[in-house]
Amino acid sequence: MTGGDIPLSWFLLFASAAFAIGLFGVLARRNAIAVLMAIELMLNAANINLVAFWRYSDSPGPEAGPIAGVMLAIFVITVAAAEVAVGIALILLCYRRWHAADVDRYDSLAG
């Protein structure tokens, strides 16, 4: 085991539990802010997997570089920040129009 004292399976169990909680939040919640937070939880679970697999890998190979997993996780964090900015802007615009953050009321956006 090259990653440390905690086995890889614990990281994977934690990440899968966080992803499942996020998926439940996306499917069960009606508040747009809560759905956005659940999506962020799912992205963080993916980041945990990326960093855990990077840490426990023996050698990523010369084409990947020594910190490929961390760089990919930083890229996912950057994309998540952009997603939050666009998501909150859309939620604020919809709130101004319908005076609610309920995702069921946004069905008139279809056209």
Rank of each mutant, 00 (worst) to 15 (best):
M1D: 04
M1N: 05
T2A: 10
G3E: 00
G3A: 02
G3N: 05
G4T: 00
G4I: 04
D5R: 08
D5A: 05
I6N: 01
L8A: 07
S9Y: 09
W10R: 08
W10Q: 10
F11Q: 00
L12W: 11
L13H: 15
L13P: 04
L13M: 15
F14H: 07
A15Y: 12
S16P: 02
S16F: 03
S16I: 01
A17E: 00
A17W: 10
A18E: 12
A18K: 13
F24K: 01
V26T: 05
A28Q: 12
N31K: 02
N31W: 05
A32M: 12
I33G: 02
I33L: 11
L36T: 03
L36H: 11
M42D: 00
L43E: 06
L43S: 12
A45W: 15
A46H: 07
N47T: 07
N47K: 14
N49P: 04
N49L: 14
N49C: 10
A52R: 10
W54I: 00
Y56W: 13
S57E: 12
D58V: 06
D58Q: 12
D58T: 11
S59T: 01
P60R: 12
G61T: 03
P62W: 13
P62N: 11
P62V: 07
A64Y: 08
A64W: 11
A64C: 02
G65S: 02
G65H: 06
G65V: 01
P66V: 05
G69I: 08
G69V: 01
V70S: 13
L72P: 01
L72R: 07
L72F: 12
A73R: 14
A73L: 11
I74H: 07
I74E: 11
F75I: 00
V76R: 14
V76Q: 14
V76N: 15
I77W: 12
T78E: 11
V79M: 15
V79E: 10
V79T: 14
V79G: 09
A80H: 15
A80V: 04
A80I: 07
A81Y: 12
E83Y: 14
A85L: 06
V86A: 15
G87V: 05
L90K: 03
L90T: 10
L92Y: 09
L92R: 04
C94E: 08
Y95F: 13
Y95M: 04
R97G: 00
R97F: 02
R97C: 00
W98V: 04
W98K: 07
W98T: 05
H99Y: 09
H99E: 03
H99V: 01
A100Q: 09
A100I: 01
A100D: 08
A101I: 13
D102W: 07
D104R: 13
R105C: 02
Y106D: 02
Y106R: 05
Y106G: 08
D107C: 04
D107M: 03
L109V: 07
L109M: 11
A110S: 07
